[in-house]
Design a binder for these strands. Structure first.
Lengths: 109, 109
DNA sequence: GAGATATTTCCAAAGTTCTGGAAATACCGT
DNA sequence: ACGGTATTTCCAGAACTTTGGAAATATCTC
């Protein structure tokens, strides 16, 4: 992943409302969650939610599939994986970030 | 880590200039890097660099120690570890993020 | 304490983000 | 095709970010 792409994705997650959206979608699991349900859950104006979703979709962290009149949102796990991998690469140069080994870091997660 | 803190830290890293700063400091390793050297390396105005460093220090991702007239910047690895751990927790609920297991994700890093 | 170097703070301009109401679009059922 | 529900796009205001020149501060050396 290029630095600028990582920055754009981190920026997308670096807004409390968008991070809440992402978090909620992760917790929704495989089946995802409709935009309307998300709105109700997060108590935010429809247009505001739509803007934030556009941002998350734009950077590839979320995707939507239509089911009739409702749009179902899903997290894009591989993209999140790539982003975390990027951070591990940036953070763990020379092993200084995870002195007890990377396994330790993950164990705790 | 609280959601708002995670968001603030992700936002701090979510700017290309600040991510370059952080990346450069990680690569500088244990001994860190002086502000002046960073400036020369990244080719950015001194005041601009100072603002960005203040942001990174403010969220706890970077620290400074004085050595005579120069200030040496260091990455705060534990904070980055906590942030990555937060993302793993948010991302890997129910194991859907790393189907091959977390070790696989780390292995590749 | 004066002069030199390193860095920050002050100020301000240009650009961007966040928010939500209102109007538009998309799709379904009849 | 019409009425209804779901969602987005348009518009705009307020707030925030980013940037850097100029002035201020901090520290060292002599």
């Amino acid at each position: 992943m290029k630095l600028d792409d990582a920055a754009t994705r981190l920026e997308a997650l670096g807004n409390p409302t968008r991070l809440r959206i992402y978090r909620t979608l992760v917790r929704a699991g495989e089946e995802g969650m409709a935009v309307g349900k998300l709105q109700e859950r997060l108590d935010v104006a429809a247009s505001t939610l739509s803007h934030h979703l556009k941002t998350l979709i734009g950077v590839g962290l979320v995707s939507q599939t239509r089911e009739g009149t409702t749009l179902i949102c899903h997290t894009n796990y591989p993209m999140m994986r790539s982003l975390i991998r990027y951070m591990l690469e940036e953070c763990c140069v020379e092993g200084s970030c995870a002195p007890g080994g990377l396994a330790k870091l993950i164990e705790a997660a």
